[in-house]
Design a protein around this nucleic acid. Sequence first.
RNA 1: UGCUGAUGGCGAC
Length: 237
Amino acid sequence: AHVLPSVIKACAGLLAVKIGKQVHGFSLASGLYWDPFVESSLVHFYVKCDELVDAHKLFDNMVERDVVCWSALAAGYARKGDLVNAKKVFNEVKDLGFEPNTVSWNGMIAGFNQSGCYLDAVLMFQQMHLHGFTSDGTSISSVLPAIGDLGYLNSGTQVHGYVIKTGFAVDKCIVSALIDMYGKCRCALEMSQVFEDMGQVDVGACNALIAGLSRHGLAEKALTVFKELQGQGMELN
RNA sequence: UGCUGAUGGCGAC
């Protein structure tokens, strides 16, 4: 019974729709469908495959809904840019009787960011704090690009300060997210500073830096940096 | 100190 969720998870990763549906059928036939782990991995599977209608239907018919499958569904709507349903599902949480956790919040922030609903991503980030949660690395690297796209330099600087204070500065994803954010806010200096403060060289950070430099019309500088890094044996795209 | 499910950046594809 513990292998089903893993199998379904693999189908979701591969977008193997047919196989996933077969596994779904098998779980029904074998009577394992009521297992919360099986069910939520199925919800996640349908979400990943963009079958939100099926995902929602499954969710509504579940015997044992919990915070995990609820998070998966809400995040799925957010990632699709379906603001109405995302918020609707997210706000249903009280009626369902459980509480969002850090992952639930992160899923919404990341989803809104990926679908270009930047303002909503930032608002969710604020709400998360108002509800007494602390952001982790995932929340921060999800919200930073949204802040950058909105040009909210003040918020970005605040998050940067928080990153330094909490020691998240060693996280590669966060560093490149910071570089990306400063690049979008047209702060070439801060951007380069973050890059240099990073002890080690990271491909992602380099990509963000070069993209940021080009955005400033500093294409030549970008090329120079590109060659420098190549000289150090970096494999860039 | 892990051991079935939901959440992360830039880029290439």
